[in-house]
C-alpha cells in the first residue's frame, strides 16, 4: 500500500529530499535534453549570418531597456500572425540568440520581421519620442539613445564571450570588433571593405541615426532592428506549411 511506504518516507528527511529531486527531474530531462541531440530541432542553414558587433551592441541595449517585456520576436504558426507579421519564425533564426528574445507579451507588435520595413529615420524619430510619429503610442521615449555615444570598447570581449557559448565568430571578427562597429555606422571613415569581407555582402553599412559625426546608441539599436528577420532566408523559401482556408492553424506536411 502506497500510504504505508509513504509512512516511512516522511520519517526520513534525506529520503524525502532525494525523492523530491528524482520525481521533479523527470519532466525536464525528457523535454529538454533531447532538444540538444535531435538534429531536426533546428533547421540547418549554412548561410545563417551572425550579428555584426554593432548589431550585437544594439541587441544588448534592447535587452538593457527591457524592450522584450512588450515586444515578442516569435511569429506563431497561425494564419492571422503570418498575415500580419510575415512568415512564421523558424528555430534557426534564433540559433545564435544567447539568450533568445521570443518574449511573452505583445503590448506592442511583434518585431521578428521588422527589419527594413521602416526607414532608419522613422526608427530614430520613433525611438526618440514614439508620439512624434504615432500619436496614440504608449511606448516610452528613449531620448537618451541619441545622446549617448556607443560604448564600443567592450565589444571585443562581448564577441569573445559569444564565441565561448558557441557562436561561430572568427578570430579576426573578435579582434576587430571595436573598429567594425564604428565602420558600420560611419562608412566614410572606417574599413568598410574589411567589414563586408568578414560579415558578408548583406551587411547594412550606413549612418543609422542621421548623424555622421558620432556613433551613438541609436545607431546600434536601429542597426539591430533593421537586421531582425534578415539573418537567414529560410523562413521565406521553405513552403512546407500550408494554411487551411477555414482553420487558423497551420498544418505541417511531413514533420
Amino acid at each position: 500500500m502506497i500510504f504505508t511506504i509513504h509512512n516511512k518516507i516522511e520519517r526520513n528527511s534525506i529520503v524525502l529530499a532525494l525523492g523530491i529531486i528524482l520525481v521533479s527531474a523527470v519532466g525536464g530531462l525528457v523535454e529538454i535534453a533531447p532538444l540538444f541531440t535531435i538534429d531536426d530541432t533546428v533547421e540547418s542553414d549554412p548561410d545563417m549570418r551572425v550579428y555584426t558587433p554593432l548589431e550585437l551592441a544594439g541587441r544588448n541595449i534592447y535587452i538593457r531597456e527591457g524592450c522584450y517585456s512588450c515586444h515578442s520576436q516569435m511569429i506563431r504558426t497561425l494564419k492571422d500572425e503570418v498575415d500580419r507579421y510575415g512568415p512564421y519564425s523558424r528555430a534557426v533564426e534564433s540559433q545564435y540568440d544567447h539568450p533568445m528574445l521570443w518574449g511573452s507579451k505583445r503590448t506592442g507588435p511583434d518585431l521578428a520581421r521588422i527589419g527594413e520595413k521602416y526607414s532608419d529615420l522613422w526608427h530614430t524619430r520613433h525611438l526618440n519620442n514614439p508620439r512624434d510619429v504615432v500619436p496614440q503610442s504608449i511606448m516610452p521615449a528613449y531620448s537618451w539613445l541619441l545622446k549617448n555615444d556607443l560604448n564600443t570598447r567592450d565589444l571585443r570581449g562581448n564577441l569573445k564571450a559569444m564565441s565561448r557559448v558557441g557562436v561561430p565568430y572568427k578570430d579576426s571578427m573578435i579582434n576587430l570588433a571595436n573598429r567594425d562597429a564604428i565602420a558600420q555606422a560611419s562608412p566614410s571613415s572606417g574599413d568598410v571593405a574589411g567589414l563586408i569581407e568578414r560579415y558578408g555582402q548583406a551587411t547594412s553599412v550606413r549612418v543609422f541615426d542621421g548623424d555622421p559625426q558620432r556613433v551613438t546608441e541609436m545607431d546600434a539599436v536601429v542597426a539591430y532592428l533593421q537586421i531582425l528577420g534578415r539573418l537567414t532566408e529560410v523562413a521565406h523559401s521553405d513552403t512546407s506549411v500550408k494554411f487551411d482556408s477555414k482553420e487558423n492553424v497551420a498544418s505541417a506536411e511531413g514533420s
Binding site: 532538444l35 534557426v92 534564433s94 540559433q95 544567447h98 539568450p99 557562436v167
Partner: peptide, 15 residues
C-alpha cells in the same frame, strides 16, 4: 554582462 549558455529554441524551453 554575461551571455546565456543556451540559445534559441533550447534557451526558450529552459527558460
Amino acid at each position: 554582462k554575461s551571455y546565456s549558455l543556451f540559445a534559441g529554441v533550447q534557451d526558450a524551453m529552459t527558460q
